Computed example of a mutant assay.
Amino acid sequence: MTEKRKNLLFIAVILALAAVLWLAAHHGGTGRTAVLRYGDPQVEQRIDLRKNAEYDIDTGLYTIHLRVENGGIAFVDSPCPDHLCEGFGTLKNEGDWAACMPAKASITVE
């Protein structure tokens, strides 16, 4: 094998490794973070799903209550009139989404 071919092979291997590492770090999120969006103008808050916690967020219309537990997040004890947001249950998987329309708030798991 010529020196030029060895160098090209080495570069190809390094690029392939870099691509795999980048995809592992950035592909569609980790399922360990939720993005809460609320208000007008819209505010975005990232919530770590690895730490159990409770959040009371004033959206300007309602104070929403969120619970992070066992790697998931849920609307709990909603003050809105219909309580539909509570019906979404616990969001754990990448792409899971829920909203409280009266509070103009939504959560998406990344």
Rank of each mutant, 00 (worst) to 15 (best):
P41Y: 04
P41E: 07
P41G: 01
V43K: 14
V43T: 13
E44C: 06
E44R: 13
E44I: 08
Q45S: 08
I47E: 03
I47H: 02
D48G: 09
L49E: 09
R50D: 15
K51W: 13
N52H: 09
A53L: 00
E54V: 07
E54H: 12
Y55Q: 02
I57L: 04
I57Y: 07
G60C: 05
G60N: 08
G60V: 00
G60T: 08
L61M: 09
L61I: 09
L61Y: 08
Y62T: 02
T63V: 14
H65T: 07
H65R: 14
H65K: 14
H65D: 01
R67I: 02
V68T: 03
V68P: 01
E69S: 13
I73H: 09
A74E: 06
F75A: 02
V76S: 05
D77L: 10
D77V: 05
S78T: 07
P81R: 09
H83V: 04
H83M: 07
L84W: 14
L84E: 12
L84Y: 15
C85H: 11
E86F: 02
G87S: 04
G87N: 08
G87Q: 08
F88C: 08
G89R: 06
K92G: 09
K92C: 10
N93W: 05
N93L: 08
E94C: 09
G95W: 06
D96T: 04
W97H: 15
W97C: 10
C100W: 03
C100S: 03
C100K: 06
M101Y: 12
M101W: 11
M101A: 12
A103V: 00
K104R: 14
K104A: 09
